[in-house]
Amino acid sequence: MKILIVEDEQEMLNNMRQSLEQELYIVEAASNFKSATEKIGVYDYDCILLDIGLPDGDGLELLKYLKKQGKDDGVIIVSAKDSLDDRLKGLDLGADDYLPKPFHMAELNARIKAVLRRRNFDGNTLVEIGNVLIDTESRIIKIADEKIILNRKEYSILMYLIANKTRLVTKTALAEHVWGDHIDQTDSFDFIYSQIKNLRKKMDKATITVEAVYGVGYKLEVE
């Protein structure tokens, strides 16, 4: 999988690159409009992370250019400006997703996975991990061919952890992803624990397990 990061903030770029390389993607980077245009013109990418606030040009122009070239690289717009206008414009121009800064690495991972899955496995909605088989279309989950029922939130948690498998997912990232942004002010994320407990109980026959990490978050391990 080849991913291009278009980002002018060096440290931001480094973080993303480090995280994505852990997912074994081939990561390339462009830190300005000009080099990004060159790279897009020459190579094909599975996914482009596009910061639209570039110092030497509008990232949305890059998106237009890309579509004019007839390329169908997946595009996730990354912006420090969480503006409804930009979001609509970006999605209108053919971006796959819009991710406002700051975001959690786990969230970025999940979004990239979602884009890649949509792009590369047309029609194939099955995700297999360990002895767990998930149909993302019908949301049917089978463990060793045995169907289990998860509620909406348990399903979200599981999918999020799978997207970040073997990696740390902080409680904050998990809570914001599953319960939405507005869960933020709650005094503790302890309530996540009861959902995790239920999930573990329902999946005790699976070869994947949800491990607690330090008390910071969780990690999905595959045996």
Binding site: E9, E11, M12, N15, M16, Q18, S19, A80, K81, P100, K101, P102, F103, H104, M105, A106, R167, L168, T170, A173, V213, Y214, G215, V216
Partner: peptide
Amino acid sequence: QTPLAISINKLELFLENNALKKNQADDIT
């Protein structure tokens, strides 16, 4: 937004990639 994003992500990666003692992890958290 950007400095916040950089700091948060850096710490998330740091937590993930280093074998930390409990109290160190707590501090980072």
